[in-house]
């Protein structure tokens, strides 16, 4: 099996007159975890949406060698996406099982009613693996932050994509749930290319292959050792960066 890869060349993204990214190029190859950090409003979500073809971009995005530039339906065949949770999107009472099932249902031809036995078995297997089978009938809004993220991860895993993009999966998750999620994401990165944005890179540090620093451009991309430097981070975060003995921490108000 060919290892997954994301290749970006001359990527430019604008919102009206505001340029968020201008001619960015980078390449991520193979299994492993890439953590994307940057202050609030730095463009982490914009970058992810640009890679996924959900917003207009210029340049070129290749995933596993396939040109998916501006083509969400093509990107969606290769990438599982875990978006940031917004409660207002889920004001309609949709339950856990319906959300996970939707990943398979929407990929089938209409009328999308019912599933073959093996598909039902796969849905059950993933839900059990993610520890959400027992809460399958609960509406999403009744779940804790950690349970919700498990549901979204299950939805993206149920069809086993080679690439996973997770937008701040640790936000609004309690400390115990966060530790479980971090462990799970690290395990997923063992056989997938995983991009995860976070306000604090320290959660993933021991398993981070690459660290990408974003601030309306890609400021740095490299191993944690190359990137986690006080002078580099200070340019992005200003006074939010401080050194504790030999460990670099970022505390920008969203980390906890």
């Amino acid at each position: 099996m060919v290892p997954p890869a994301i290749e970006v060349s001359d990527l430019a993204i604008s919102y009206g007159d505001e340029v968020i990214f201008s001619r960015e190029s980078f390449k991520l190859k193979g299994y492993g975890l890439t953590v994307v950090i940057g202050p609030n409003g730095a463009g982490k979500t914009t970058l992810f949406k640009g890679l996924l073809g959900l917003i207009p971009v210029r340049g070129r995005v290749l995933i596993n060698g396939i040109d998916v530039t501006g083509k969400a339906e093509e990107a969606g065949k290769l990438v599982g996406y875990v978006p940031q949770f917004k409660a207002e999107d889920y004001s309609f009472p949709i339950n856990v099982k319906e959300i996970v099932e939707s990943a398979i249902a929407l990929r089938r031809k209409p009328p999308r009613i019912g599933f073959p036995r093996e598909v039902r078995a796969r849905i059950r297997e993933v839900m059990k693996m993610m520890g959400i089978w027992d809460i399958r009938s609960k509406p999403l809004l009744e779940l804790s932050g950690g349970q919700r993220q498990r549901v979204f991860i299950a939805r993206s895993l149920v069809w086993d994509p080679p690439v996973l993009i997770m937008d701040e999966p640790l936000t609004a998750v309690d400390p115990i749930g966060r530790a479980d999620l971090v462990k799970m994401i690290k395990e997923l990165a063992e056989n997938k290319l995983v991009l995860v944005s976070s306000h604090d890179p320290s959660f993933f540090l021991d398993k981070t292959e690459n660290l990408m620093v974003v601030n309306k451009r890609i400021v740095a991309l490299g191993s944690p050792k190359e990137v986690l430097k006080e002078d580099l981070l200070s340019k992005v975060y200003g006074r939010s960066v401080f050194l504790v003995e030999k460990c670099v921490h970022v505390v920008d108000g969203y980390a906890i």
Binding site: L54, A72, E73, G76, Y81, P83, I99, L106
Partner: peptide, 9 residues
């Protein structure tokens, strides 16, 4: 509920 997800599907 999740417009982006449906597009990606």
């Amino acid at each position: 509920v999740d417009r982006d997800f449906v597009k990606l599907s």
